[in-house]
Write a protein that binds this DNA or RNA. Structure first.
Lengths: 331, 331
DNA sequence: CGGTATATGCTGATATCGAGCATAAGCGGA
DNA sequence: TCCGCTTATGCTCGATATCAGCATATACCG
């Protein structure tokens, strides 16, 4: 895969909030060059309506490995690594972000700071095997507050919001409060599902996640922590995917070759973390001619049998670039 | 500039067309780690209605330099480098893409292949100075076919289209022809200004640009070439910027503190390379409350004096994330 | 045969988009 | 002073897309 196409090519940005987690190289003797490069993967699948991510070492790390000379390209290096660790081929792959890794900078000081290049990859779940205990985890284990498919804002309302309220109250400027409202959809602001990273960063700043350097007295929120910046990278991957399904037909990378419209919808909902309006979703999909009926029907639906569809591969070249919306309108 | 987060954080994608220019590490002894990392900048300004990019060495290279231990982060390394080469401070910065550089792989074989991390940066034009002859160039010098502000499709119609037609005719599958139509807006397909990279890649494949390994008999099209992948990186930056101005208020980084709506429009047009509908543009800008009047007017317009506006910095936090459209509707 | 569950089709209100008409307010010269 | 030119600015109208429901179809299960 080449490294980029048009508007998607790569978006990245440094920013204020991010600066806390900013890529950072430990000071050294100054003018020496940076050293090694690591490839790190956010590998996603959706199984039985649950969004899952491949993790290793008890769920605490994302699969990764060094970029080596024998790799013909960054992407093929990534593929090689993940496949060797998981015995599982990668489908769609796209670059996420590159940063100088703070955690490794010390350890690798001899070689200079480590550069990490992160990728998002989509597949379907299969058996895993490897020395590092690769396992699929529902990504909401890491970000419980991101799952709002049942409309459930209990965790947010009852636990997170009060803690954020307290954090915002530490300063008398309204800036923190506004940021909370914006990013977590409080005070009448709408919830934006793609702000996964901003929410994680805000919780990090507020000392509410295990990875925070300065933990708040309250102790960390529910949600599995990860090594180093890995949970942050995962957040970046989820955010990217949530944004991308809206205008590119990537969902199909996560589905079986044939599927019902409801299965497609459940897949989108799993990723977006919110329920969508069934009728409008169907209309959107059908009017875009993203799929075509196979002729067969699925009878195991529990109700009226559903037509089976397949993805029209042709759209990949028809609309390789132009917009293709798989809208996530509220349910 | 902390305001670009979330869905923007980083977008990248692999794709078929890009494979030709694939990031690639020269073969070596196999398991050795990759070596140095370079930072490379697409630095953009808009002056007198022209989009400009900073280039060095006679316009043939983008400013770049190695990432060193003394740099606290990748971004600050980039800032340091560009500022030392140009004596010019950087404003908004965002990461573009990371790749293993084919051209440098040989030269740097001792250290392993070079990794290049490219950035898009926005500023306003100022005096430049430096050993490497930094100069501002209108970016349409590199991509003449990308400027359609005057509706001028002469170059495309008269020169490029016939050559592409010939290239498409080399194969009897309709795939090439469809790709040309899609990417260059032929055969009734609409022109998508953000497909800068896809167009460059297609021309590269067709052997129509100077950087092509296999040049077509016709010789290269008009347009300055650059060293290595630099013109490709520039295309990536332009594409990113063209996509981004549509949903994020980044234009203002390129404007003087106060401006008329027409100046704002001209700036957007310069970037997008197409004319926009004046009244609708104003409506869009005003209804979004992106700007506020200063009270003063500019009388040098040649017609009725225009109100001066300033950017409402507040929107940076209000809509740090949510959509903000600076639409590019046809003029 | 009703009860339940899903599939699928359709409608009306609202917002947005694209294109154009019309008027306002400067300037310079006849 | 009035005319013609230029740019600024306000407003309308129709096409399209979005959002939220209502209604109907077709299964399975007892």
């Amino acid at each position: 895969m080449g490294w980029g196409k048009g508007k998607d090519v790569a978006r990245g940005e440094g920013g204020k909030a991010g600066r806390l987690h900013e890529d950072r190289a430990a000071g050294g003797d100054g003018s020496r060059q940076a050293g090694t490069a690591d490839l790190i993967a956010v590998l996603v699948a959706v199984t039985e309506g649950e969004p899952r991510v491949l993790a290793i070492r008890g769920g605490g790390s994302l699969p990764s490995g060094p970029f080596q000379l024998r790799h013909h390209s960054l992407q093929s290096g990534l593929r090689a690594w993940v496949e060797s660790q998981t015995h599982h081929p990668l489908g769609y792959v796209e670059q996420l972000y590159t940063f100088a890794d703070a955690a490794r900078a010390g350890a690798a000081a001899a070689d200079g700071p480590a550069i990490s290049i992160s990728y998002l990859a989509l597949t379907r779940e299969g058996p895993t095997a490897g020395a590092d205990e690769p396992e699929w985890h529902t990504w909401y284990e890491y970000f419980p507050w991101e799952d709002r498919r049942d409309g459930g804002v209990a965790l947010l309302d009852e636990l997170i919001a009060p803690l954020l309220e307290a954090w915002a109250g530490e300063q008398d400027t309204p800036a923190r409060r506004r940021r909370v409202a914006l990013v977590f959809g409080r005070d009448g602001m709408p919830w934006h599902e793609e702000l996964v990273l901003q929410r994680y960063e805000l919780l990090w700043e507020a000392g509410l996640v295990a990875e925070s350097r300065h933990r708040a007295g309250a102790g960390p929120l529910p949600g599995l922590a990860m090594v180093g910046d890995h949970r942050r990278i995962l957040a970046t991957g989820i955010a990217r995917l949530r944004a991308k399904i809206k205008y590119r037909p990537v969902v199909f990378e996560l589905l079986a070759p044939t599927f019902t419209l409801l299965e497609l919808q459940r897949c989108v909902e799993a990723i977006a973390g919110r329920a969508v309006h069934k009728q409008n979703f169907r209309r959107l999909i059908e009017q875009q001619e993203l799929v075509e009926p196979t002729g067969a029907v699925a009878r195991e639906t529990g109700g009226r049998p559903a037509k089976l569809f397949r993805f029209r591969r042709a759209v990949l070249e028809e609309r390789a670039v132009a917009g293709t919306r798989v809208g996530v309108t509220r349910g």
